[in-house]
Structure formats: C-alpha cells, structure tokens
C-alpha cells in the first residue's frame, strides 16, 4: 500500500531529523525539525488531518454491487460516486483501499486510511471505535427467495433457514426478528445467494439494492421489502473532527443541490427517499 510506505518514510525522516536536532545540541536551530512540517504548510486542507496532501485514502470492501464493485477494471458504484463527489468538492483525490468488510473498522482506527465508505450501517457498537458521518442512505432490507419458493414474505419464515451476510443489518435484523428460523451467515452476499441458488437455504435477507441487483441478474426473486430504520454512514477516525465536519457539510450540499438524486438514480430504480431528496 503506497500510503503506508509514504507515511513510514515520513516517520523515518522525521525521526532522523529529530535525532539530528538532538545530536546537534543547538536548541536555537529550528530548521531540521521544520523540514517535515514545511510540506504541510503549502496547502490549506492540512487541517483535515490527512496523511498525504490532497489525497484522501478511503477504505471499502469492494465486492458489494451496486455500492462498490470492480467492473472492466474500474472501481464503481453508488458509494464510489458519492465519495468521489465529496472529495472533489473538498479539492481532494480519492485513493481507494480494498479490504475485507470485517477489517474496515479496525484498519480505519489504526490509521490505515482516512475514511471508509462501505454501505456500512451506523451502529452504537461501531460508533465506539470510529465516528460516523450523517446518514447518506436508508438501509432497506429485502427478502430474497428462489423462483419456485412458497415464501411470500417474512410471515412464512417459521422453520425455514435464512441466510444473511456477516455483520450486516440484515443479519442482526434476522437474528432479532426471525426467531423461529435458522439463521446462517455468509462472508459475502455472493456466497449467500450462491447457497440460495444451490437450495441449501430457503431465503436471504439482504440490503435492498444488493437484492434488487441479484434479482436482475439471476432468477432469484425479491419477495418482500422491509424497512429496518437503519442508515449507512461514512466512517472517519474518532479524533478527526475536521474531516467529519467537512464531509457532513459537503454531504448536505450534495443533497441540497440535487447531485445526490442524480447519483442515486444512476444506481437505483425508484424514488429518492424523502430525506435525501432536495
């Protein structure tokens, strides 16, 4: 990862500089330690707490269409477009880092990147480790079943086995509400849908957009849409209030001027939820 190496390099230079300064035994001489800082003073975005000038390193689990995925060698999706728009308005370039969903939070906390966007539901548990931006998406869940299934909705799930993705809203919701069903978790939606197509499970509870995408490209069917009152947020490091504020302001701007609606309709069908409409 380029960003890590660069940071390592800066740290080493800084350490060397400090060591030199100490050895020089000339407390009046400010030049040596300042050499590193000088770079920061060129740009005003310095106060966003980014490791590298003009670049925001964003972590995601880039295997989650239509939010983030790679097609034709290019990273794309709703989250990607939204993040690129926010960054552009802040005068920043986005450098994407692809990692596992379950690693995202700890890596953000460990300063591996500056922010994360990964269709991640805002939860209290997660908010203990990282800070979340204002919501940018409503996490509606959808119940997906096979083409010949008798299941018409959540009312038919007693005694059935329901799949979900690890650590998702769907998983938590299923465990809380489908107490008469066997809940099986998968490391990814493709794995869960694969098991459904293999008839190893009866249904999958997934984020609506992911479910709709799956319905469009296979013979699986969305049989019921469930409002869970949960929302996605962009994650930033807890101590980086400047970046958090900048993201929240920009997000509000993007919603207000209708750009959000444009991005939304690029990736999803149907109306923009009222709270995100301009």
């Amino acid at each position: 990862m380029r960003s890590v190496n660069l940071r390592l390099l800066i740290s080493i230079v800084a350490l060397l500089a400090l060591a030199l300064a100490a050895c020089a035994d000339e407390p009046d001489e400010p030049e040596a330690p300042d050499e590193v800082d000088e770079v920061d003073e060129d740009e005003p975005v310095d106060d966003l707490g980014l490791a590298q000038e003009g670049v925001i390193v964003v972590g995601s689990d880039i295997d989650f269409p239509p939010f983030e995925f790679i097609e034709d060698g290019e990273i794309q999706g709703f989250d990607v477009d939204l993040m690129e728009e926010i960054a552009a308005r802040l005068g920043l370039e986005v450098e994407w880092v692809d990692t596992g969903f379950d690693a995202l939070i700890s890596q953000l906390a460990a300063d591996e990147f500056d922010a994360l966007i990964a269709a991640m539901t805002i939860t209290e548990e997660r908010a203990e480790t990282i800070a979340f931006s204002d919501p940018y998406f409503e996490a509606t869940q959808a119940l997906v079943v096979g083409p010949d299934s008798d299941i018409t909705g959540v009312g038919d799930l007693a005694g059935m086995s329901v799949g979900a993705q690890d650590g998702t809203t769907g998983e938590a919701y299923a465990e809380e509400n489908f107490t008469d069903s066997t809940i099986t978790s998968f490391p990814s939606y493709p794995a869960a849908f694969g098991a459904l197509e293999a008839d190893q499970i009866d249904a999958v509870l997934a984020d609506l957009p992911a479910a709709a995408e799956q319905e469009a490209r296979s013979d699986l069917v969305v049989t019921e849409v469930i409002d869970t009152d949960e929302v996605y947020g962009i994650g930033v490091q807890q101590d980086n209030e400047a970046l958090l504020a900048a993201i929240n302001d920009t997000l509000a701007e993007i919603i207000a001027d209708g750009t959000y609606a444009d991005i939304y309709s690029t990736w999803f069908e149907g109306d923009v939820p009222p709270r995100f409409a301009d």
């Binding site: 548990e125 480790t129 990282i130 690890d166 978790s185």
Partner: peptide, 11 residues
C-alpha cells in the same frame, strides 16, 4: 471469532 469481528470491528 470472525462473526464477532464483522459485527464490532474488533478482532
């Protein structure tokens, strides 16, 4: 272990 990690981000 992994399930706890994906729910909480804690390993």
């Amino acid at each position: 272990g992994q399930q706890v990690a994906s729910r909480t981000g804690n390993y």
